[in-house]
Write a protein that binds this DNA or RNA. Structure first.
Length: 879
RNA sequence: GGGCGGAUAGCUCAGUUGGGAGAGCACAGCCCUUACAAGGCUGGGGUCGCAGGUUCGAGCCCUGCUCCGCCCACCA
């Protein structure tokens, strides 16, 4: 790629992410690598982004979610799929409205002061001001979305989709209006869906009130004013005689009349077994009231204050009323007793205000029939939820689903496409704006409410692709291939998309759903601005580099984890890894003088090169297997281990010998070849995780193609797994490690070159002879391979399998240390022998265990017995 | 009241068909060996929450229990 912005500067020994990140993203975007081919013969692969709040800022959840999506989409793109990662943002109804209301409040204004149009203008303005932020933050993360297709839930096309679906569902009688008891937030002044109500444990009082001959307990004495009945269980003999009767009961406002009904909703074992029925202010009571035709008395208003129907309490706050009415009843002797009580109250998910159940007329979707299809889609495998554990949660929610209240008393959102005739009261639902009544031509006014934000996001997988038009994008990319999201919005979003996608498109919205963890702070607390424990991914990117953040995110995505704590040491490790990769590449790049790929390919690879190729093949295979099953953390760990331990710690050290000694040009060439090809493949394998650094290095290496982004993703090849090479390398590495261990434990000064005699047998003799120079350079020990060797005096013993190593130590160290070391080794051998013998001594083991397991155990014991003998014998040498 | 997840090294966490437990960080020793001290080599450290069961063999499978955490739910 000849890009003028890319100037290969002298390579620093520290990886500096900032410049590299700034360099490549614009290049990728400019070359159109993020865009799918249209049309294309390639197989499609698509992901729709969980749309972030348009006015929001990137948080750790986004960083995780989008890193995982980008890993998959980059991998699929490299794998030759026609990929689309569809981006966009959400208008986030209530969340955004609250922010703008707060801005107004700072000016001392309420939204009603400026009116709906002006308010909406302010929201749009706020959207324009802040709307670009999250997108540029996603770009900074490296997200390879097709930004030319960016959508917003309130843009024209998506709004058309929203109206179209609303009208269709209304025609099918799946959307309807109903007077029902709803969750009302007196602060936000809107109705909330069941999902938007959270439960909070609160300490309160359980007040036993006398109702004439009966006594009952309640936590909401203030709703007594709205009582229109009492209820007992049908089989409760204690109260049988009262059922059907209307009681006259002395109360705070004189005498009231309440009917006693029998209803199975009452738990006879709880409290006194009698409940007061307040259909206007309790969901259960509302249902009981419907069943028994009890009237509704609304005593608490939408403002959370008592209504005129509350008599002397009218205008008072509902919680003050609770205290006051208890005092008043106490004065009248109507309180039997009061007990402390702890229970869960419903609160608004946004402002934590206690929700007031109120009866009002709202729009609903009858989701029950849609839910059935959504369950079937998972059951039949058309939608695959990963990890499987979430399937049960999904089923449970779907199977117990209740009508979805979709109207909200907000201004910011999709206005409900319903018009009311002011003359004949008829209701009309339409995809186009109405100006007069279709029936009587009378004047109409549009429903002032807007739709639940999740209604439009529920259409996201097809609305973003152009529906209701029959676009090529829709045809190509629907159903989408994968959805990646956190478990917190399974119900809010995943479930709604499943239902609406299946209903409207007659096909699933996505094939795979990968549900990932939620990120918490180092103490396991949920991150929140009020707690001040928010870790900002942008800060982390600046501090550690984007690739390091991404690698860390991948490491967090393990299948069994629910919540994960973010601690900075993991980021440090990732940053160090990037630096390691950078420096390994520097070593390779600075030793390419005279490199000729064609000539190098003709040189037969040596053992180490074969071993490296074999390990790479295994790594490719493991990484692919992990990614295919969404085991991101396994993939990341596999790559980390390969690059650090095998490539850097072993092979680069081995390669130095050939690289720095020009005596054998063919070997130098072959080594260069192994380094270049392995590093190049490794970079491609690593690219989806760490896109920036891999591109930067790749461009400096000999490579084919314009960008690593569109280079092929490595394929595992059985041909390259070289078991013989791995076996033989294990012998060489074992000898090196054994000598190093002696060096380390004997405190041999690093400058000293040791003399080692290696007593090997069979094929190992030739093998070790051939690699003696390698051992010498890696372990700093001049090796003599001698099958007939005898133990020289004053030497330390190392044993690797059947091979013995004698390291001469005379005059170097005090041999008492060697004695200690040997004794420790003997203890270890003893333990292993004892364990193995005990195992083999049990007849059941020999008879029942598979033959290969038994044989292995036998070999292990024999080997350790031999080892022990050698160790004991060598103790004598030490003296 | 249902359902789910976790409990493994000092800390944070892996552990995919059951064969004597791993990583990163931290710790100890020795090294600024010309890719990298954000590094290298070597080493110490775990009754895998508790109790049973299945099995020749259990971190892994079954049962019960104890502590955390989460989700759902119309017992007021």
């Amino acid at each position: 790629m000849n890009d003028p912005s890319h100037d290969p500067a002298p390579i620093s020994d520290r990886y500096e992410p900032a410049a590299v990140e700034a360099r490549w993203y614009p290049v990728w975007e400019k070359h159109g690598y993020f865009r799918p081919e249209m049309p294309s013969k390639k197989k499609p692969f698509s992901i729709v982004i969980p749309p972030p709040n348009v006015t929001g800022s990137l948080h750790m959840g986004h960083a995780l979610d989008n890193t995982l999506q980008d890993i998959v989409i980059r991998m699929k793109r490299m794998d030759g799929f026609n990929t689309l990662w569809q981006p966009g943002t959400d208008h986030a109804g209530i969340a955004t409205q609250v922010v703008v209301e707060r801005q107004l409040a700072a000016e001392g204004k309420l939204k009603d002061d400026i009116g709906r149009d002006e308010f909406l203008y302010r929201v749009w303005q706020w959207k324009e001001e802040s709307g670009g932020a999250i997108i540029s933050q996603l770009k900074r993360l490296g997200a390879s979305c097709d930004w030319s297709r960016e959508r917003f839930t309130m843009d024209e096309g998506l709004s058309r989709a929203v109206r179209e679906v609303f009208v269709r569902l209304h025609k099918q009688k799946l959307i309807y209006r109903d007077d029902y008891i709803v969750n009302w937030c007196p602060r936000c002044q809107t109705v909330l869906s069941d999902l938007e109500v959270e439960r909070e444990e609160r300490d309160t009082e359980f007040v036993y009130i006398k109702y004439g001959p009966l006594t009952l307990g309640t936590v909401r004495p203030e709703t007594k004013l709205g009582d229109t009945g009492l209820a007992v269980h049908p089989k409760d003999k204690r109260y049988k005689k009262y059922v059907g009767k209307t009681l006259e009961i002395p109360s705070v406002d004189g005498t009231i009349r309440v009917k006693v009904v029998a209803d199975a909703a009452v738990d006879p074992k709880f409290g006194t077994g009698v409940i007061k029925v307040t259909p206007g202010h309790d969901p259960t009571d509302f249902e009981i009231g419907r069943r028994h035709k009890l009237p509704i008395r609304t005593v608490i208003g939408f403002d959370g204050k008592m209504t005129a129907a509350a008599g002397t309490y009218a205008g008072m706050d509902r919680f003050e009323t609770r205290k006051k009415i208890v005092e008043d009843m106490q004065a009248l002797g109507l309180i039997d007793r009061i007990e402390p009580y702890r229970h869960a109250v419903g609160v608004c998910y946004r402002c934590k205000t206690v929700v007031e159940p109120l009866v009002s007329k709202q729009w609903y979707v009858n989701v029950k029939p849609l839910a059935r299809k959504a369950v079937a889609a998972v059951r039949t495998g058309k939608i695959r939820i990963i990890p499987r554990g979430w399937v049960k949660t999904y089923y449970h929610w779907m199977n117990n689903i209740r009508p979805w209240c979709i109207s909200r008393q907000l201004w910011w959102g999709h206005r409900i496409p319903a018009w009311y005739c002011e003359r004949d009261d008829s209701v009309h639902v339409s995809t186009t704006d109405l100006t007069k009544c279709p029936k009587c031509k009378g004047p109409v006014r549009q429903d002032p409410d807007v739709l639940d934000t999740w209604f439009s996001s529920g259409l996201w997988p097809f609305s973003t692709l152009g529906w209701p038009d029959k676009t090529p994008e829709l045809k190509t990319f629907y159903p989408t291939s994968l959805l990646v999201t956190g478990y917190d919005i399974i119900f809010f979003w995943v479930a709604r998309m499943a239902m609406l996608g299946l209903h409207v498109m007659r096909d699933v919205p996505f094939r795979d759903v990968y549900i990932h963890t939620l990120i918490r702070d180092p103490e396991g607390q949920k991150m929140s601005k009020t707690k001040g424990n928010v870790v900002d991914p942008l800060v982390l990117m600046s501090k550690y580099g984007t690739d390091a953040v991404r690698l860390t995110m991948a490491g967090l995505a393990a299948p069994t984890v629910r919540d994960v704590r973010i601690a900075e040491d993991r980021l440090e490790a990732s940053r160090n890894f990037a630096n390691k990769l950078w420096n390994a590449s520097r070593l390779v790049l600075s030793n390419l003088e005279g490199y000729d790929a064609a000539a190098a390919a003709r040189v037969k690879p040596d053992l180490a090169a074969r071993w490296l190729a074999s390990r790479l093949a295994a790594t490719v295979s493991d990484v692919r297997a992990a990614l295919d099953t969404y085991r991101f953390s396994d993939a990341a760990a596999t790559l980390y281990q390969f690059v650090w331990s095998e490539l850097c710690d072993w092979y680069l050290e081995i390669a130095k010998v050939a690289l720095y000694q020009t005596a054998d040009p063919a070997r130098r060439l072959a080594t260069q070849h192994a380094l270049v090809t392995t590093l190049e493949s490794t970079l491609r394998l690593l690219h989806p995780f760490m896109p920036f650094i891999t591109e930067e290095i790749w461009q400096r290496l000999p490579h084919e193609g314009d960008s690593i982004m569109i280079a092929p993703y490595p394929r595992a090849s059985r041909r390259l797994v070289d078991r013989a090479a791995e076996r033989e390398m294990a012998v060489v590495m074992g000898v090196v490690t054994a000598i190093r261990a002696i060096r380390g434990e004997m405190r041999v000064p690093p400058g000293v070159t040791l003399a080692a005699t290696v007593k090997a047998a069979g094929a190992h003799v030739a093998l070790l002879r051939a690699h003696a120079p390698l051992v010498e350079s890696l372990a700093r020990a001049a090796c003599t391979i001698d099958p007939q060797a005898t133990r020289p005096p004053s030497s330390a013993l190392g044993v690797v399998g059947a091979t013995e190593i004698y390291v001469g130590l005379e005059g170097i160290v005090d041999l008492a240390a060697e004695r200690q070391r040997l004794e420790k080794e003997i203890r270890r051998a003893d333990e292993t022998i004892a364990f193995g013998r005990a195992k083999l001594a049990r007849p059941e083991f020999a008879e029942r265990a598979p033959a290969d397991i038994v044989e292995k155990e036998r070999e292990k014991v024999a080997a350790h017995e031999a080892l022990r003998d050698k160790l004991v014998a060598s103790l004598a040498w030490v003296g």
